[in-house]
Nucleic acid binder design. Sequence first.
DNA 1: TTGCTTTTCAAACGTATGTATGAAACTATC
DNA 2: GATAGTTTCATACATACGTTTGAAAAGCAA
Lengths: 230, 230
Amino acid sequence: MASDQTRSAILAAAERLYADRGFGDVTLRDIVAEANVNLAAVNYHFGSKDELIAELFVTRSIQTNRERLNELKAAEERGGGRAAIEDIMRALVGPTLRGCLGPDREGSTAARFMIRASIESVPPIRRIKNREVDHLRKFAAAMRRAMPGRSDTELYWGLHFALAMAHHTIREKERLLRLSEGKCDLDDVAGIIDRVVTVTVMALTMGEMAASKPPARPTLVHGRLTRQDL
Amino acid sequence: MASDQTRSAILAAAERLYADRGFGDVTLRDIVAEANVNLAAVNYHFGSKDELIAELFVTRSIQTNRERLNELKAAEERGGGRAAIEDIMRALVGPTLRGCLGPDREGSTAARFMIRASIESVPPIRRIKNREVDHLRKFAAAMRRAMPGRSDTELYWGLHFALAMAHHTIREKERLLRLSEGKCDLDDVAGIIDRVVTVTVMALTMGEMAASKPPARPTLVHGRLTRQDL
DNA sequence: TTGCTTTTCAAACGTATGTATGAAACTATC
DNA sequence: GATAGTTTCATACATACGTTTGAAAAGCAA
């Protein structure tokens, strides 16, 4: 059918333009011009502008989530049902970082689009992101199996910090590059993944380490952090 | 002069509305209605809508940066010119986290405004954020003095990860709360600061470990697209 | 072909928005 | 209290935007 061609052309053009110029600067007229289709085609095929954006983001999110779960499953099979915590965290942050960072990814429209989505956070995308919690619960469950001793609170903070480091690196890679005057190599994706995973695993195993050697200012009691006055 | 009253009323109303409803949903007409001033007053006093937003953000940013530097200076004086790395990181993330988190801050318009600015990232604000690098360099310098053995690369990654955890916690506090089903106490600001500082110092202390020896091998798994996720 | 559905198209619609205008009201200095 | 400068106000402007419309074209089954 020719209708699929139009649909695909709109999707491709929209993703390219949004990736290059951001959501705020791209209008439907820009998109249909790039796709060489009629203006009304967007509303005919997608219903509205927001639904077009949502479809773009959902498609890419599903791909990432799929990769994450595949890596997690592979790690669990390797470990006979219980994956090592390092591999779990690697499965969590690896696909996103590999997808959005690295020198070969400069030309990838999908990657640049996802970076934009991470930075600008437009309403239709925010709505979809809110559903991501269910997906993350699978990783929380895997972490619980890998570290039975840790409390849920600690696991969630670890998961949260892992995503924080990964996403913030993607969001602010330009700034980090400028701040470090190029010393932080953002093309070394594997190194960055190792870095994030190592820090996260350390944070997760922190309780035990602190029991033997508590740090100076923030003190750990019963595996929990307690406040220290300024 | 009465003109200062109008100016202040606009600023207050704008900050309140932006904090509550976000930049995308608030028009100049909403603001002047809230402030009980004429529509033209915004352009008369600020030049344009973007300059109004910029002034709001600059004001709040300066406050945060001043608090950071004050804490840093206090820590350096305590240590006789060289602050402990824990205190440096605490000075970096403390003011932001205290400003944007905590139960008593629910009513703080300024805090909610800064959270919005962190999430939505509108053009005039992005422009200002790019200048933040100079401010961060002062913290990089303090870190270098506190940890002479560490390479600049490691220091920048530590600084970057500290900001990542702090900002991501502010940005995604709703999601973390939902994911952890309330187990992560986001009202315990001091505890969160301790957590971020501890993890960051650990990351900085481990240093060469992460750079030289990765903990596990990366496994590439490619996924196919289905609707079952998300 | 005929008749029906799906898709494309040019044009228009409605409106929300930031900004500009010019006169009126106000303020301060002499 | 007259004059010059500042601030306020109602109103208009321009126009960019997503969406809708209704007809034409294309596809398709009989």
